[in-house]
């Protein structure tokens, strides 16, 4: 995927770039309003990660410009503001998703992938990973054509891990993805363990290889290597 990261804070910009690049994407960055405008006028991206507060102008103006020119790029707004008006106006202006800082990079990648997938797979919303095939519309998972019944959270977990394939995803990031951050108790790590166990068992029962690896006790990695 080709991704443009528009973010004025250098540390955040590099952090996103490193993670996304490492996951096999091509990333470009813009640190301010005018640089962002220049880039979107010259190049097309699968997804644009857009910070709202930029030196020189608002990220919402960049979004307006994109939509005005009917450019097809997907847009994910990242903002420190969790205020409803901001979120609403962002989505109303045609952004695909809205992510509030602070977030995990694995969450960012999952959201970007979801946006790109939605835009690219018109009519055939299938995601495949070796022998695993996921019907994103019907939320059905099958291994070598054999259906695997997963609970809602197991399904979310599988998608999240595949989106971050070959990356170590921390338990903390998984917990925030599955339950949001309103439940902040240590208990949820035990739930993650249960869900991982379930997911692994169901996939392997269906004849799938074991792709889920535990990483130093602090997270998991979905990888065929």
């Amino acid at each position: 995927m080709k991704i443009l990261i528009i973010e004025d804070e250098p540390g955040l910009r590099e952090g996103m770039r490193d993670y996304l690049t490492d996951a096999g994407n091509i990333c470009e960055t813009a640190s301010g309003f005018y640089e962002a405008i220049q880039k979107i006028q010259l190049y097309r991206y699968d997804c644009i990660i857009l910070d709202i507060m930029l030196p020189g102008g608002s990220g919402l103006q960049v979004l307006e410009m994109l939509k005005h020119d009917k450019l097809p790029d997907g847009v994910l707004i990242v903002s420190a503001k969790n205020a409803l008006p901001d979120r609403l106006s962002g989505l109303k202006l045609g952004a695909d998703d809205y992510l509030t800082k602070p977030f995990h990079l694995s969450e960012l990648l999952a959201r970007v992938e979801a946006i790109v997938r939605r835009r690219a797979f018109d009519g055939s919303p299938f995601l495949e990973f070796n022998e695993i095939r996921i019907d994103l519309d019907g939320k059905q998972v099958s291994v070598k054509g054999k259906a695997v019944r997963l609970s809602r959270r197991d399904y979310m977990l599988l998608l999240y891990l595949i989106a971050n394939k070959s990356k170590i995803v921390s338990k903390n990031a998984i917990a925030e993805h599955l339950w949001g951050d309103d439940i902040d108790m240590a208990d949820r790590y035990d739930f993650i363990y249960t869900h991982i166990k379930n997911l692994r068992r169901k996939l392997m029962d269906a004849g799938c290889k074991d792709y889920i690896q535990s990483a130093y006790g602090m997270g998991y990695k979905f990888s065929d290597k």
Binding site: E9, G11, L12, G15, D22, K101, P102, S170, N172, A215
Partner: peptide
Amino acid sequence: MTPLSLVNFKMDNLVQEGLVSDRQGVLVE
């Protein structure tokens, strides 16, 4: 929020470099 995001990002990237031991895993956790 910005420094918190920053620490979060750095940690997310740091663990990708590969840790050496489970002890480090506990600390990261």
